[in-house]
């Protein structure tokens, strides 16, 4: 149990996949224009990671070593398809907003990376803890970036106006350059904090 908590905490802070390892950047930068979309993207991503980690970990004894990558990809692609159809069925508007980024979870480096580096080598319980840690850290990071961008770029949080009426938003923050800008400052901040 303690080992499970360790694995969970490691995924959440020390091995933060986005800010430390710079993996899976595409959805993080593209979907973080609104907090609501970012939260849903985080949940969809965690769902895929959770189930693919469980399946891959439980199949690890039966998977021949040299065809493991195609096996991982098929398992992940199946859960991505399920997620895609679930989102399209329950919220067509959200499906339009997230667009091509839901099917693109298939080639997200984090999911494939965790399958290869963790789930294929560890038991189901530890893989589950790893998936929850990684999924939570992905969701927290993407929501954090979206909060900053939405607040500065539109003066809103979760679509609600929080700034005074005459607030002039930084439009640039919700345009593509703003995403790179926020990432630059977040990583610089993290470098500063870790090295001190």
């Amino acid at each position: 149990m303690k080992k499970g908590i360790d694995v969970f905490a490691k995924g959440l802070f020390l091995e933060n996949p986005i800010l430390v390892l710079l993996l899976g950047l595409c959805p993080v930068l593209a979907v973080s224009t609104s907090t609501r979309d970012a939260l849903c993207m985080g949940i969809a991503f965690s769902f895929v990671l959770f189930f693919s980690n469980i399946i891959i970990s439980s199949l690890r004894k039966f998977t021949p070593h040299h065809v493991r990558i195609p096996v991982f990809i098929v398992v992940i692609a199946t859960f991505v398809t399920i997620t895609d159809y679930l989102v399209a069925g329950y919220s067509p508007q959200l499906h339009r907003n997230l667009g091509v980024f839901i099917p693109l979870i298939v080639v997200n480096c984090i999911v494939l990376g965790r399958a290869e580096a963790f789930a294929y080598k560890n038991n189901v319980f530890l893989s589950l803890a790893d998936a929850i840690g990684m999924g939570a850290s992905f969701t927290i990071t993407i929501v954090l970036i979206a909060l900053i961008r939405e607040f500065l770029g539109a003066g809103t949080i979760f679509g609600k106006m929080v700034m005074p009426e005459n607030y002039q938003p930084f439009i640039i923050m919700i345009l593509p350059p703003g995403a790179f800008l926020i990432m630059a400052f977040l990583i610089a901040l993290q470098n500063k904090l870790i090295k001190k």
Binding site: P176, G178, A179, F180, M183, F185, I187, A188, N191
Partner: peptide, 23 residues
């Protein structure tokens, strides 16, 4: 380059300016 911005952060800043140009 300022110490904290060495490496990846300055690359993101560069990408930001390039993205602005492409916009």
């Amino acid at each position: 380059i300022p110490k904290a911005f060495k490496g990846v952060p300055i690359a993101f800043l560069t990408a930001s300016l390039m993205s602005l140009a492409f916009l």
